[in-house]
Amino acid sequence: MSTNTAVRTKKSDEDKKLAFKKALSTAIPYLGLLILIVLFQILTGNFLTASNLEAIFDQGFTLLIASMAGVFVMATGNLDFSLGANAGFCCVCATLAATYIHPIASIPVAIIVGLIVGMVNGFAQTVLRLPSFIACLCMMFILTAATQSLITGSSIMMPVSMMFWETFARKLIFGIIYMAVMIVMFKYTRVGKELKTLGVSPEAARQSGVNVKKRIFLAYAITGLAAGIAGFWFMLRTGGAATTTGQTTTSDVIIAVVFGGMSVSGGASSKISAAILGTLIVTVLNNGMVMAGFGGDPQQLVKGLLFLLVIAVSTKRDPNVIIK
C-alpha cells in the first residue's frame, strides 16, 4: 500500500467564508450570554455579585441536568415530551420513599423510577415502533395523572432531616461530575457519536454498524435517568413534592437547548455545550429580568421575542433541506 500522505488542497476563499460563517454561528450563543450579563449588570448594578451567581447556579441546576440529557434525544432529531412529567413523578416517588422507607432510599428510588419510565419510552418507540411524539405525549398524561393521585393536599414534605442535605458545595461537586460524565459520554464515547449519526440518516448509521434500536432506547433511558436525578434535586430544592413540580421543565429544556445553539433537527451539528450555555442564558434571562423590574407581563414577551431572534440568527438556511 503506497504510503503517500493525503493531498491537502489549499484553502480557497470560498472555504474561508464558509469557515467564518460556521465560527460565527457557534459564537452567537456565547456572545448572547455575554451581552445579557453586561446588560443586566448595567441595569441592576448588583447582578454580578457572588450571591446572585449562587442563586443562578441553584436555579439553573435542575434545568442543566435535564437539558444535558435532552441533547442526547435531540441529537437523533426527536424530542422527549415526557421529561418534565417524569421529573415530577420521580420527585413524588423520592419524597414518599424518604418519608416511609429511609431518607437515603430517595436517591435510588428516584433514579430507578426515572430509568424505568425512560426505558418504557424507549421500548414503545423501538420495539413497538410507535411514533415518538405520541408515545411521549401519552406518557406525559399518564405521569401527570399518577403524580396528582399520589399527592394528598397541595404537596408532601420531605423529612426535616433532609433540609440540610442540599448545600452549595455538594451541588457544585455533583454538577461538575455530572457535566464531565455527560460531556465525555456525548463527545468521547460511542453513545454520543452514534446518536448524532441517527440525526443525519438512520439507514446510513445502520450500515456503519450502529445498532439503531439500541441507541434510541439508550437515549430515552439516559433522559429518563436524568429526569430521575432532576426529580431528586427538585425534592431537595422545594422541600418535597407538589403537583406542579416539573410542570414547565419540558418546554424549558427545549427553549434552553435552542438558545444554546443546538440544531433542533439533530445530526452533525448537535453539541452538548448547547445545553450548558442554553441553561445559563435562560436562567440569566429570568433572573436578570426580574431584578431589572421586568418581572410582570413583559417577562414572557421579551423571552419569546429573544427566542425567535436567537433561532433566526443561528439556524443555517438550506433551501432544499426538508423542514418539518
Binding site: 433537527s265 419569546g304 438556511r317 423542514i323 418539518k324
Partner: peptide, 16 residues
Amino acid sequence: GLRIPSIITGYAMLLI
C-alpha cells in the same frame, strides 16, 4: 422564512 421546525416556531409564537 426562518426555516425552523414547526414545533419550535410554535413555541416561540406561543410565548409571544
